[in-house]
Design a protein around this nucleic acid. Structure first.
Lengths: 228, 228, 228, 228
DNA sequence: GATGAATGAGTGTTCATTCAT
DNA sequence: TATGAATGAACACTCATTCAT
């Protein structure tokens, strides 16, 4: 489970990168680049299908249509491919585009747009997020990774809350970091339950209802003035 | 990660029990009962120390000071012992005693007491909760178990919210179930991060601050009238 | 190659034992003892046939007629079985019985008996000695083992030389340790070449000639007085 | 371990060459010659550092700064490079220059010079000699190679002994070949222990003491008349 | 000649589960 | 019931060798 929330304000947070050890010399030839890419793609597919623990390296190489040994030209082990998979998805996960509301100053609108962007990104990468949750429970390296990712969101949101407090929009009695932890966490749990945990056959949650509930609770919690 | 919140009101929720298949005939002899109990106790210890996946059955039997084969007299496999372990801890986890505020009608006081009780129970069983999170990621049976446990809390809290709405204390625009999912989730994430995830060396969160933040946000979110 | 020579005199040398790490809990049941013994016997056979490096664990278990996994009940790896094999042969190798000449004082006779006993023991365990040479080249633990074994012989012989010097039988200008190193080494090379290295089809060296040559050179080197 | 001794007399022994199969067409171009030389040099370095078995071909090509595939332009496998390495060192090993004492007839002086030359050559190539010992234990081809090299020395020395017997300097009761085997072996063991086996941190043996001990024992063994 | 990515056979090791005693 | 030795399937990983550029 991670603890995150949309970027409300600016926030040039340092992106949580995969551990150094996971970075290898990139392939020099074009052919190498192709094979590596095929392996990463195959790994994501197999991981999402079978889970991290049940995924066998041979399944990945089979899926990538290359020999078992070729795997080790690019990765030292399962962890490393996973790191590569996450790294590739990271951009889309960390900066859920939300240029839409750039023009407005209405905090509620900004908040809603931010939540929507976050939830959309989560939904887009739902299987990967579920995977990350699983791995974080099993591999300390990825627990760390997940923590850093969550912290990035939390700090960004805390800055947003502090800003709103300064503008007199949010309750000043509240500690921005604690509140951010709680509210960011709230959104991420909802996202996890709605998208990552949901079984295929289940009836999906109404996305818009999700966005509006979460936004309303968040605004209320901070005591946005006299709305609705 | 689970999604729970203290019981605010009544709530004779059906307790989420371990799957039927896990219930065996109890041992007939006294010696048998003793061995079984030793195994369950040992299993909890080993699970909490090594995690579910890394726990070896032989570690458990060694800890329980009995032979490897004896394990199978009482359990069919690792899952079963874990079910037994959880079953044993369930009472304490599901009904965090909170007789204290019985007398009052002040919703805020009730809410706070409820949150405190929940967080205390979580803290008491932190390692077990962490374990449950881990297993839920790996064994569908326990994902189910965890879901049912969370749902029990969510429904209970939803009833509480509906009740407050009826009494005019809570914002009537809000859907009780959705709000309960979000707010119960919020509390459980906070608990997970503070107690289950925390490394031993980390400086602990201030417990009282945790209770009050969570309670204030929850009250605000529901728009409790004119307090503080 | 080891560097050894028969015990000439007394010498209650500390026997070179296998490293601690190689000592495990002995099997408790009789059946366990039987299996373990079968494995050690099989290991010796396979090692002597295929060499240490080419010996596969499965060959050993197959030879011992047990499952692959059973190996690990008694040994952690190939090294450990080998240690067990050597330990078992050690007694015979280190103390080549030579009570025969107890009665005499004639240094030449004692020397000859001693050489004969050493060479006989070497011949008896020729394959094992060849194995030890091989392993010592590859596994530092066994290089160490071999060194200690050689040192035991060298020191014992050095004591013998010093004694003869004191009795005026051996050249006093010679450093006993250096001489022992050289002469013990000389005998062991001869043994290695004659017994360990020899291909089956080769015509065997004449054993008696070997004994007498080695003894005569040794005696000459120490300048035993006026014989032959 | 090899069994050798300095050339005492003439001795146009047939030099033990690497197996025929190892001789390839030399590279035609100059670039080819350079690459090949780089590979042989790199191989010697890697072999001496890691040992034959642990040396990976890619380590060698990396050290030689060429691609993995280029190796096979010049050698068919690991054995072949090793053969090339040994071939290159052979000259220095087989004919340890000893022109110094050419003028004298004193057998003792000749013997000593011969031993000194041998031990110096061994010391110069200690790592390579250790390597040869290792490989000889593992690859029959090189066991053969080592044997031939040792035999060359032994025969040369046997001729020297026979010559001394003819001149009345050495004990005529002794079989020259047997004695040569024993005494040549004695010197080679000493060299192996002192130079090949010695750990870097160990205090080195006193070289002059080594030479004089070995020479004295050798002379005594052959019963050189009335010296010292 | 040189390159370096691709290949894939081969084996040590773990540990849940069984079953003879 | 209790014991603990025996079982064997399952899988990651290495590295010499090939071969398309």
């Amino acid at each position: 489970m991670d603890t995150t929330v949309p970027e409300e304000i600016d926030g040039e947070t340092a992106p949580p990168v995969a551990p150094r050890s996971y970075l290898r010399e990139p392939p020099t030839t074009q052919r190498g680049a192709r094979t590596r890419a095929a392996l990463v793609k195959a790994a994501r597919k197999v991981f999402e299908r079978d889970g991290y623990l049940d995924a066998r390296l041979t399944d990945i190489t089979k899926e990538a249509q290359c020999a078992a040994g070729s795997f080790y030209t690019y990765f030292a082990n399962k962890e490393e491919v996973l790191a590569a998979v996450l790294l590739e998805a990271q951009e889309d996960m960390l900066h859920p585009g939300m240029r839409r509301v750039q023009g407005t100053d209405d905090p509620y609108a900004v908040l809603e747009a931010s939540n929507r962007a976050y939830l959309e990104a989560y939904r887009r990468n739902a299987k990967l997020m579920a995977l990350l949750e699983q791995v974080a429970q099993v591999e300390p390296e990825f627990r760390e990774f997940r923590s850093r990712r969550a912290d990035a969101f939390i700090r960004r949101n805390a800055r947003g809350i502090a800003d709103l407090q300064a503008r007199g929009v949010a309750d000043r009695e509240i500690d921005p970091m604690m509140a951010s932890r709680a509210l960011s966490g709230m959104v991420s749990v909802m996202a996890y339950n709605a998208f990552a945990l949901a079984e295929p056959q289940e009836e999906a949650v109404d996305f818009e209802e999700l966005v509006s509930t979460v936004t309303r609770l968040w605004a209320n919690a901070l005591r946005f003035p006299g709305h609705r």
